[in-house]
């Protein structure tokens, strides 16, 4: 039972089987990456960064899409649950975006010969990271509803950068490689073993994202509960 309540108190907020499933998926992903997948001829072993780099990027897009949807619903319904969802997803989006921004240069250095270049895709990804770091700074004071509304607007507007990144990979080419997973015409540039490895990695990352999101939301819910309890104690003490 996930997120259940017993006598008004939260109990075991995530089932053990889900954590085990995520763990097994991660181990399977690592086995596929380092044992099963063939070594790419042109780039060598460093190409294996691709599996976690692209999985992190796609998980980041899912996280920021969750911020976008939850922020719209929060502005519409004014329910705390949606604000907590948006804030938790934003934190995870920043985490995965950070991983993308770190693993990208580590992969790029031996291939491109530079750690960083102001390529449109890289620059737009950095801008996306800055937008959602600003969002988290705005939400640092979790009790102010005005800040929550401004953050929700930033969460919605900031999402515009996501389709721009996708567009820049396809049309605004510079150093960043062409899309290989799904190319124009619906074909793929990956051999079957690499495609399977990528899909296992992506599944593991998405399972991890949902697991972390529920944990982060439990923290947001407990912080809110703590504020309510503090208010009740003050009221009982001082009237």
């Amino acid at each position: 039972m996930a997120g259940g309540e017993k006598n008004g108190r939260p109990v075991n907020f995530w089932p053990g089987w889900y954590a085990m499933l995520t763990y097994v998926a991660m181990v399977a992903a690592l086995w596929c990456i380092f044992v099963y997948a063939p070594t790419e001829k042109a780039q060598g072993i460093v190409q294996r960064i691709f599996y976690f780099h692209v999985s992190s990027a796609m998980t980041m897009f899912v996280a920021f899409f969750a911020v976008f949807v939850a922020s719209i619903i929060y502005l519409w319904k004014h329910a705390d649950w949606w604000d907590q969802t948006a804030m938790s997803a934003a934190e995870l989006g920043v985490l995965f975006c950070t991983l993308v921004l770190i693993t990208g240069p580590i992969w790029g250095r031996p291939i491109w010969g530079v750690w960083w270049t102001w390529d449109p895709t890289l620059t737009l990804t950095l801008v996306l990271w800055l937008i959602y770091v600003a969002y988290l700074m705005l939400r640092a004071d979790a009790t102010d509803p005005r800040r929550a509304r401004f953050a929700a607007i930033l969460g919605i507007v900031g999402f515009i950068d996501v389709p721009l990144i996708r567009w820049s990979i396809e049309k605004w080419r510079n150093l960043h490689p062409d899309p290989v997973i799904v190319q124009s015409g619906g074909t793929t540039g990956l051999p079957p073993a690499m495609m399977l490895t990528f899909l296992v990695s992506l599944t593991a990352f998405l399972l991890l994202f949902v697991f972390l999101l529920r944990q982060r939301m439990a923290i947001a819910r407990r912080r809110h509960e703590l504020e309510v309890l503090r208010y009740k104690v003050d009221e009982a003490l001082f009237g």
């Binding site: 780099h53 991983l99 580590i106 031996p110």
Partner: peptide, 12 residues
């Protein structure tokens, strides 16, 4: 390029 691969996965 082993160390690039090792660094990336260690950081993640």
């Amino acid at each position: 390029n082993f160390w690039y691969l090792f660094s990336a996965y260690t950081i993640i």
